[in-house]
Design a protein around this nucleic acid. Structure first.
Lengths: 219, 219, 219, 219
DNA sequence: AATGAATGAGTTTTCATTCAT
DNA sequence: TATGAATGAAAACTCATTCAT
């Protein structure tokens, strides 16, 4: 009998995680179709057959990556925004901080998600998973906005969808295009570590300001 | 010998354009690696060998798509922002309108560009082309911002890179995720045509407001 | 109507000769199958279709090369050995000189002939042409040997086939392996022109001595 | 991962040898470019993909053939000529016998080597392998000649390169052109087996006499 | 539980040739 | 007479997956 997807218990075993990580990186760098199972097996130092053995197929491996990464994300966000005593403006800041952190720690996964999102109607299962994730974010942020509006802090008529898309799209775009940022700002000589911190800080400030502006600015 | 890239004159011939269009659509839907030349040939109703014949290789075909689409884009934007008698705020509006139009009329191409952008350091030629394009946009918008600042209309300390990334990232994200928008807002029954207009209008309003807010809002 | 093989009159036209020469060189360098008609067309600066047009097919082009080169060869040899007043030993020397000259001036063609010869039963027409050529040489040299034997200058029991094969095989081998000769004798710095003369001279001396030895040496 | 070239131990496995043998024959009959991997797979009764699987590529398969055949050859020759108590003339005879035997048992391989030799500067690896092989033969025979000269048995001023080329070139030429030999001597009716023995015997006698003549004959 | 061997279907690209003009 | 356009067939190679062990 094959341990086809994951242990019922809770987690993937060591080798599975190794494969998942490598696959995640390669998929993000070369795309799903652009990455062969041999590439993955080679980079993960495991037998080719092991991928089919553990995950069933290349497609299923991709789904496993989503399963592996998505589970934790939503919960954290929920916790974050559930704190009733926190000021809505502060929550916005926490939201931005949280998203930028997530993005920095999961760049590869975010790239894959973006890719799969773009292709649209390919894998039905994945589509569902992604939609669920978006929906949850949408609901949480909607609640946050509503709270701010009720308290008279935020303006009326806010399109939450567009706002969430702006958060996600802008952040991703900035993060994905960080080499361009480097080049345009002639920061090629700055050590990578330092550049990451700089970028993160600037992103946070920029995004926080932007959202406060959006939420309060009346023409 | 071979009409390898493009006509001396200026354009691709009818059959080449046919191939380019089909390839553009398929690449955007399935990714570059996920699309085979057979797929393209089949959908474009031409012989498989013709793709090599006209473009040399699949890779070169992709470059041709960029060549085909990018050439016109930059010029229009330049014209747009060169008009000296127009108010900076109005120019921001024109910029948004123009970008949203472009996006709507070239959704496929924008998806491909985003995809290739994400992969990063794959095809050096393409990397260069994309960077040039981004650079041009950056320079034009930088000039626009500077103008607004000089006139005292915009605030100081605006990170143009982040602003451009926000325009691009947010627009793309919204556009790419339009099915989600439909679902979340329960607009599935609305005729496609009408939905497109609605979305476009909302995007325009949202983005224009957002940019005005960003450009004037002080903490 | 196509001028399918050659003018009845006598010769190939300028363009045909151009193609023949280029094809000869490429076939000798890369082999028949290893050379594409596009390679030839490219190197000869003519349209691809022109090769089919002029020669009918790639195969026929090869035959045309043989037709073009072989015609002259045999006649010269005949003239050479027909001179009744010349001493048989001197004729042997003339034969060697002639063969070495031919080889130097037609290296490419000799390589092709050797190649086709090796493949054996491929193209029937070519097989016939090559056999005729060998037969003629065999007959001429047989006559020469017989003459020398009648005059008591050469020993009895000479296997003319083996002798001819030795002349052809040894000469070709030396000529084909001239880079090796260069390397082994550390003559890499010698100017090409000078090296050719040196090699030719040594070959002549060596082969002449060898044949005289073969023809007179009794164990 | 892949058993890419050869077993650690020393040899190729059964299936690999099967492929090597078939490829060797086909390459010798049709040339390298003239033989497709499909041909080989078909004739060897294996899957096409197996050739890539075992050897990596068609080119590498060719190199494997050389690796497979060359390894043993040099050693035998060395053993042969190392026997100090044997008379130089006798060694010449042993050399001829050995070469003719080799040639008869490895006709296909010798044809391939000749072919690749003729093309010259194609595959760098192969070029090196062939040169090493030639060099070794050259050195061994040089030593043999020097020994004979020291003992006053052979004449001075012998160009060993030309001599080796003559041995190789003449033998190959005779062997390759054996059908012609048959035809010219009207031996078509003789059973193949018998003809082979006849030819071999005549070659041996002829070559031995020739070399003795070359080595002792003074103008 | 894990894997080396094997493969059919697929990939992109090149081929020699034909055809319409 | 000459050629650019076009193509079916075949080329070498890679793919994800299966299977016997």
């Amino acid at each position: 009998m094959r341990p086809n997807l994951k242990d019922m218990e809770s987690r993937y075993n060591e080798k599975q995680v190794q494969i998942l990580s490598v696959a995640e990186r390669l998929f993000s760098e070369q795309g799903f179709s652009g990455t062969s199972v041999r590439d993955i097996a080679g980079a993960a130092n495991v037998n080719v057959a092991m991928i089919s053995y553990y995950f069933g197929s290349k497609e299923k491996l991709l789904e496993a990556i989503f399963d592996y990464r998505i589970s934790s994300t939503a919960i954290q966000m929920e916790h974050l925004l559930a704190q009733t005593h926190v000021d809505p403006f502060e929550k916005i800041e926490m939201l931005v901080d949280h998203y930028v952190d997530k993005l920095q720690n999961n760049t590869c996964f975010f790239k894959i998600m973006q890719s799969e999102h773009m292709k649209g109607h390919g894998n039905k299962d994945l589509d569902g998973i992604i939609f669920q994730s978006k929906k949850k974010n949408f609901d949480l942020i909607s609640a946050l906005i509503a709270e701010g509006q009720k308290k008279g802090l935020f303006k009326k008529n806010i399109d939450v969808s567009l706002m969430v898309s702006t958060l996600v799209g802008a952040s991703n775009q900035i993060y994905i295009g960080q080499q361009y940022y480097k080049r345009l700002h002639e920061l090629d000589d700055m050590p990578e570590e330092k550049f990451q911190q700089l970028l993160k800080k600037r992103m946070r400030v920029f995004l926080k300001n932007m959202f406060k502006a959006i939420l309060t600015y009346e023409l």
